[in-house]
Nucleic acid binder design. Sequence first.
DNA 1: GTGCGGATGAACT
DNA 2: GTTCATCCGCACT
Length: 201
Amino acid sequence: MPKLAYSFYQNAEVNDLAVQLLGKLLFTRIGGELTGGIIVETEAYKGIEDKASHAYGGRFTNRTQVMYEEGGLSYVYLCYGIHHLFNVVTAPKGIPHAVLIRGIEPVTGIDVMLRRRNMLLLKPNITAGPGALSKAMGIDKDLNAKDLSGEEIWIEDNGIVFPNDQIVSSVRVGVDYAGDHALLPWRYYVKGNKFVSKPNK
DNA sequence: GTGCGGATGAACT
DNA sequence: GTTCATCCGCACT
């Protein structure tokens, strides 16, 4: 199946891109172990103008510099000292937009995901939530700033398209610190999908 | 150098 | 609903 083209990631309309990523397949191959799943939940972070973004106000640090790179790279960071969160860097070089991947539906390498999560049975919480899916797919800071058309982590288009009436937008999770921007409806998910982190908000 | 707190998840009561 | 694990990025001194 085809990996997403470089041009896909150059779209500066990060909210459009966050919606378009729903239905795409995220894969990792780490230590020879292949895992993959359908993206079912995303959030848009709109660079320097978004109070919830790490790049708000043009903040440029060792951590955020990859956000300013051209679209099509990964941005992985450690949250709460425990969880690695995976983002897709988007927009042309110099515009630090990103899309947080918050939920995937496992498709490939489910046995590997179960082992990484210390689970015996497949339950939604294996990959529902950004920290959970990163652990299941073996994503950590070693996968920061990687080319998403590479061999370790990539995104494919397998032709899955959710109709608009199945896509819900709502406020983003965990960004209360962003003041009025915490109210922006820049979270997108597939209605009714079990691998969405918090369907009720 | 210091201190605060976070784009969370799991285990509690 | 509440607690807490556990680290480092970031702002400020």
